[in-house]
Amino acid sequence: MAASAGSPAVQTPARASLNRRVLLLGLVVVAALLAVLLLNLGRDPHSIRSPLVGRAAPAFSLPPVGGGAPVTSESLRGRPLVLNFWATWCAPCIEEHETLVSTARALGRDVQFLGVVYEDEEDRVQVFLRRHGSSYPSLLDPDAKTAIAYGVAGVPETYFIDAAGVIRAKVAYPLSPEAMAENIRKVRP
């Protein structure tokens, strides 16, 4: 492309114009897009809220670790239940294990604590429980059907179920003593 000789002639633009239609349409689209993105900032897209909170806890009938008759959800009706899905390969589960064991011991027969093993092997679980101690039984869920029914997407996940069998809270992170106390209050006023 040939260059034009001499200094560039600056062409003053033709009369200033404002296309109001373009302006309006453009600003509407821009505002809508920005609003959607802005409202979602800060939200963690990987945390899935449970739809089961406020609804009946799914029934289960699972064998305990170490053998024995299956424990059914029916038999636990009448007392609040803390159902904790965990695994030995899960570091945060090991963190909260202490909290769970001591709270279970402290509450005694007022609240039933149960662990459900998720994607793990019985002998590894038994070794773990022997080493770290336990004050409540853990159940085996080998085909993960109960985990699926509860909407488990990872471990640890803990469900707080009241005496009538309704899920009152779901916690998808390791429980500190404070969080534990706060959630226990929801099922045992």
Binding site: A14, S17, L18, N19, V22, L23, G26, L27, V30, L34
Partner: peptide
């Protein structure tokens, strides 16, 4: 950038 683009289009497109 969006506002800049809309403004440019609104003022320039008719010219």
């Amino acid at each position: 950038a969006l506002v800049w683009s809309v403004w440019l289009l609104a003022t320039g497109i008719d010219r």
